[in-house]
């Protein structure tokens, strides 16, 4: 049992984490810079946040991005969970190899290729590009990630729980709904969160599949970033960093508290026996 860090390990961790966090920290610090010159400190100010929050274009882009992320994550989670069930539970069926290929290929496909191919499809079938084309594109590549997340949980799921439900009178469908789904729910939620984040974060595929009037936040951010560093982008980035950080920390705290309570319960039960 290791209780302390040794010097070497402490040094690597410090440098590693500094490398990961310093760049983001600089962005956050300079988002409070009063000066327009991004590298010269001109005093503390929150004015850039006000400017960003009053910028219609950013707000519109943020709103459309959130809507796309919500719808596509939901679609991706449903489709991904279905695919996971097919992959883990269905055994052999005609076309299984093709199916597993189609599940795994998008994970390693360069975004530019995915984006290009979907755009070409939408052009070929004459679908107007906009909200729905981006949503479909995001759902398609996110469902593969969702499927991987749910599959790995499903693979370790104790099949006898389902057998027990069948034995007690459930149909296969109601056994899945009443027993399997609640038990794998944390994985399904993770899959949704991952899909949601992937969609929020995506620039390349959205750029290919978007149309007029459907500019997402990453697309807006990208066109601003190309013009260089600006305090507005610092403020916008800091807000996004803040939201994500709070979300992830909250999720992990809840998770850890549940785990700890479960451990305590188990220990108490063992002691009482």
């Amino acid at each position: 049992m290791i209780r302390r860090f040794n010097m070497f390990n402490l040094t690597s961790l410090t440098f590693g984490l500094a490398f990961l966090y310093l760049p983001l920290l600089l962005v956050v610090i300079y988002s409070f810079n009063d000066s327009r010159l991004v590298t010269v400190w001109g005093g503390f100010s929150t004015k850039w946040y006000g400017i960003v929050l009053n910028n219609e274009a950013y707000l519109a882009a943020a709103w459309i991005t959130l809507r796309i992320a919500f719808v596509s994550a939901t679609l991706a989670t449903v489709l991904g969970t279905l695919s996971a069930v097919v992959m883990v539970r269905m055994g052999r069926f005609p076309g299984r190899t093709l199916f597993s290929g189609m599940i795994y290929a998008p994970l390693v496909m360069p975004e530019v290729v995915t984006g290009l191919s979907l755009l070409l499809l939408f052009v070929a079938i004459g679908l107007d590009r906009g909200f729905w084309t981006i949503t479909i594109a995001h759902a398609t590549f996110a469902m593969c990630y969702a499927s991987v997340v749910v599959s790995s949980r499903l693979a370790s799921f104790d099949r006898s729980l389902e057998d027990a439900a069948l034995d007690l009178g459930c149909t296969p469908f109601s056994a899945f709904r009443q027993v399997t789904l609640p038990v794998i729910a944390p994985a399904v939620i993770s899959a949704w969160l991952l899909s949601f984040t992937l969609s929020l974060d995506d620039l390349v595929i959205a750029t290919f599949t978007s149309g007029p009037g459907s500019t997402t936040l990453p697309m807006k951010l990208y066109s601003s970033v190309r013009l260089g560093v600006s305090p507005e982008i610092n403020a916008l980035s800091s807000m996004l960093i803040g939201i994500v950080t709070l979300g992830v920390i909250a999720a992990s705290l809840i998770n850890r508290r549940q785990e700890r309570r479960q451990q305590q319960d188990t220990r108490a039960a063992a002691a009482a026996a």
Partner: peptide
Amino acid sequence: LLVILPFWTSFLIRIYAWIGI
């Protein structure tokens, strides 16, 4: 968690941070 956390923040922002540096 600390290692994964930056991965959840936007890819673009992470690249953008380096432009300033």
